[in-house]
Structures are given as structure tokens and as C-alpha cells.
Nucleic acid binder design. Structure first.
Lengths: 213, 213
DNA sequence: CATTTCATGTTAGTTACTACCAATCTGGTA
DNA sequence: TACCAGATTGGTAGTAACTAACATGAAATG
């Protein structure tokens, strides 16, 4: 039983995955998500529909790959537990976004970012995709709460963590939408920080906004 | 051409709607949502599948009826515009919940509330339903921003309103989950208020929590 | 080279949903 | 009462997203 099932096989595997996904996103963008069938995607990618289903369990998964979840959970752990909840979570979200869309100052969206933008455009404009994307946030929320590692015996503590996580994720999603509407011209971490600051400042009232703004 | 197409017709219409929905929720709860076909629901309700689809465009809509959206939008307008955003929205959410689950003090869940609980249990445990439910929040968010009626020319103001609305709705959703896990023993408005206070207090930091807690 | 494992293809089936047409029923009118 | 217009329902056929079961070719291991 090979722990690393032979480099060549896994390479081809991820290769075909990429191929399928790129063709899918392109077709969806051109003709619309609902108007494109999985069979058409398969044909364009030069394979049978079954193969597509083997790599992506549902049509939605052709667009919704979650590179984000693992990053966030990892960065939550890096935050000092002394900070207030929303700050720990917020920082982790901003850091993850930085890691995801790393670009040099002054540059425009990179190639990878253009792909991300295309996918997000689909996720926001298509009902089915938007719904599943928001549901992914729901499980990411659980991951964050777990990563926070606060006292899990006290239901009230858990509840507060859940509220903080869901609220932060919602703010981040709003930031994502704005980022897309701006075609990614502003840097993503900046927009997310702005969103978090906005809802933080408003919650406080008027007493001096966050310097992040 | 009768403007009010004869009371009796509309009455029967809403009647069959209720019938279908009750049978559907019961079957879904007993056998599971995915394991129950629309054809089975139709048969149980004593009608053809076509009729079910005439009354509910999708299987998901058999569970997801939104009595909440209109209430919230209406109550946003009732809030004084001097308050900070999250308070205006939060108050509207709590008030709407009160209106929705009005019960006398000391009572347990009413009949209507039991039905609501059953539907929410399905919405939370079933992927497809949970996703669509969260997506409904997404459109409710837009309704709230519109109802706030703040300066729509300044993109930053709109952005802040969107962030506040989405964060509040996320907090409310977390409250809903908790309410369901508690089988509705605590009163819903109380739980929602607690959630909003939690994320408000945490955002502020430590400087004196909200008296709502 | 033999064997086992994996990626792919084929076929047939289920189910949500749509389009279209026919039958039936209801509410009001001549 | 007889009748008409519109609304409600039913039936049939079709599309498309999946799933299960089996066969085949290529690749990795011994």
C-alpha cells in the first residue's frame, strides 16, 4: 500500500481536475451556469460525463473549490487568545486573504486572481452557487469555533464564539461581493479589513473608528 | 373581471397549500428530506405531483416559506434613524421575532411554533434546505439595506449598511440554530437579543457590556 | 511477466422539474 | 336554469442532474 500513490498518477489527476474546472468556468461564464449542461462541459474537456462526476461530485463543485477554509483555521491558531473574539477571527480572515491573493504593491489582479474573480462572479450571480457558497461558510464557521479552542463546556462561550464567527464571515462575504463589483482593483485584504472595521465601529457607536479605515 | 377572485377560491387555494405543506413537513421529518420524493408527498396529500408543483415551484419551497422578510423590512422603517445601524437592524429583528412567535409569558411553544420548529429543524439539518435558507438571508439583506433608506449615492455608506445587515442576519441565524437546539424552550426574541448583544459587546471590547445580557 | 490497482467508459435507472394539451370545476350572467 | 370564462387539476412526454453496476485499458508493484 503506497502512501504516496505514485507521483505520476496524482499529477495527472490534479491535471485533469484543473482542465475540467477551467473549461467549466469558461463555459459557465460564456453561456451561463444554468444554460450549460455537465455533458457539454465533459465534451469540451474531451471526456465522458461520468469522468467529470468522478472528479466533482456535483455540478456546483465545478465552481466551488474551497482553498480558503484550511488557511483560515490554521491562522486562527496563530492569533493570541488575549485579543477579543472578533479581532482574532478578523485578523485570521485578513491574513488568509493576503496569503490567497498575494500580489506585489501596485500590480493589478494576477492570473490566478482573474480565475478567482471569474468563479466569484458566478457564485454571486447564480442562485444555486450562491446558496451552496453561503452554506460552505456555515461549515467554515464551525471550523473557526473549533480552532478558537475556547472552553467548549460552557454553552454560552460556544454560543458567543459562533455568533462572532458567523458575523465576521458575513462581513467578509459582503467584502467579497464588493471586491468583485470593483473587478478586484482594490486589494482584497483591504476591503475585508474595511468591512470588519465598519461593522466594528458601528457596533461601538461613534466613539472613534478603527484606524484601519 | 373580479379584482378579488372570489373569496372562496382563494380560501381553497391557501387551504390546499397548507395541506400540502403539512403533509410534506411531516413526511420529511419522518423519513428524511432526501429520502422522500415529491411524488410521495403528492400521493399522501391526495393529489397529482403536478398540482404540488403548481403550488410550490421547488421541493425546497415546501419547507421554506418566508413569513419573516416582510415583517423585518416593515419594522426597519419604524426604527429612529438616529440610532447606530446595528441597533436599528437588531431591534427590527427582535421585534419581528416577537411578532412571529407571540406567546404569553410562561407558556411553552404554541402549535404554530411547533410547526416552525419542525421546519427549522429540517432547514438546519438538510444541506439543500440550509443552503437555500441562507440564500434567502442574502435577499433579505438587500431588503433591509433598502428599508434603511440611507444615502444610496455614497458607495461607502451603502457598503457599511450591507455589512451591518449581513452581520446582524448571521448573528440571528446563529440564534435560530440555538433556539432550535433548545427545542424552543427559551423565547426566540430573547435568544436573538442575546446573540446581537454578544457580538456587539465583543466588538466593543471590554468596556461595559450591553444590559441586554 | 503477472497481478493488482486505478482511471475511464457504457448502460440503465431514479428524480426533480418543465412544457403542452385535455378535462373538470367554479362564479357569475343571460 | 342554462351557459360561458377563467381557474384548477390531471396526464404525457421530455430534459438534466445525478447513481449504481459492470467492463476495459493503463499503470504500478512484485
Amino acid at each position: 500500500m503506497p502512501d504516496q500513490p505514485s507521483k505520476l498518477r496524482t499529477r495527472r489527476r490534479t491535471e485533469t481536475r484543473r482542465t475540467i474546472q477551467e473549461h467549466a468556468v469558461r463555459l459557465f461564464t460564456e453561456r451561463g451556469y444554468d444554460a450549460t449542461t455537465v455533458a457539454e462541459v465533459a465534451e469540451t474537456a474531451g471526456m465522458s460525463p461520468m469522468t467529470v462526476y468522478r472528479h466533482f461530485p456535483t455540478k456546483e463543485d465545478l465552481v466551488l473549490v474551497d482553498e480558503y477554509g484550511a488557511l483560515v483555521a490554521e491562522r486562527i491558531l496563530a492569533q493570541p487568545a488575549t485579543q477579543p473574539l472578533v479581532r482574532r477571527i478578523g485578523n485570521a480572515l485578513v491574513d488568509s486573504a493576503t496569503a490567497l491573493t498575494g500580489r506585489e504593491h501596485g500590480e493589478g489582479p494576477s492570473v490566478g486572481e482573474e480565475f478567482l474573480l471569474a468563479r466569484l462572479r458566478l457564485m454571486i450571480s447564480t442562485q444555486a452557487l450562491r446558496a451552496r457558497h453561503l452554506d460552505n461558510h456555515y461549515v467554515l464557521q464551525q471550523a473557526i469555533v473549533d480552532a478558537l479552542g475556547d472552553d467548549t463546556t460552557d454553552p454560552d462561550t460556544v454560543f458567543r464564539a459562533q455568533v462572532a464567527a458567523s458575523a465576521c464571515l458575513a462581513a467578509m462575504h459582503t467584502a467579497l461581493v464588493r471586491w468583485v463589483e470593483d473587478d478586484g482593483r482594490t486589494e482584497l485584504p483591504t476591503v475585508i479589513a474595511k468591512a470588519l472595521a465598519a461593522f466594528g465601529a458601528d457596533t461601538v457607536g461613534v466613539e472613534g473608528g478603527d484606524p484601519l479605515t
